[in-house]
Amino acid sequence: MDQYMILKDYVSSADAETALFYVIAILAISLSVGVISDRNIIRSGFILIGVFGAISGLFLMLQAQFLALAQVMIYAVGITLVVVIALMLTNPRSEREAVITEGDEFSQETGAVQFIQRLQQGTPAFVAVFSFFTIYLAIRSESWTPVTEKVSTDNVKVLGEALTTVYSLPFEFASVLLLAALIGAIMLAKAEKRQPAIESAED
């Protein structure tokens, strides 16, 4: 028990926690940039799993063990599914062509038109920076009063009790939502049997 306590004290000391937070944060940020900017959609799917791993590390640091594990469990499988579907839907050759055309898109034009095109390309970046900055200002201007007491170690029990008592109605709604999503997804993805020719062609 001694070594456990010493290790625990060390890990929960503020400096170590801050350093660990920055390491995980930098990992998460760079991987998520990788997700949106990697040329290959399948690669970016695999990188997304890394992002979720880093985020579940953050959850562990925030003492939400249950959610960290649920995150790993759901997303490891869920994103694999996304990747598999992406594999089925993308043609490596057409992907390469798209990349080439994207690079040459504004090379023919000159002067003001090219500038405007660049601005148009920069619109998503502006929206993203603007939204981040607005949220950051909102966070910063508020003065939070953090509670010093720690999360209880058996917060799984607290979660379970809350889900079955106070939040039982939202819980039921969530399960109904999942059922509806399941049925809807099956209906949408089911191949239509009227045109067997197209189906076999795609297979």
Binding site: S32, V35, P124, A128, S131
Partner: peptide
């Protein structure tokens, strides 16, 4: 907020529908 912004950037910017879904997950 930063991850949200990156996700939003990816969602608007990317042309592949699967990548849009990934950005929303982010």
């Amino acid at each position: 907020a930063l991850l949200f912004g990156i996700g939003m950037y990816g969602m608007i910017k990317s042309r592949n529908a699967v990548r849009v879904l990934m950005s929303i997950e982010l």
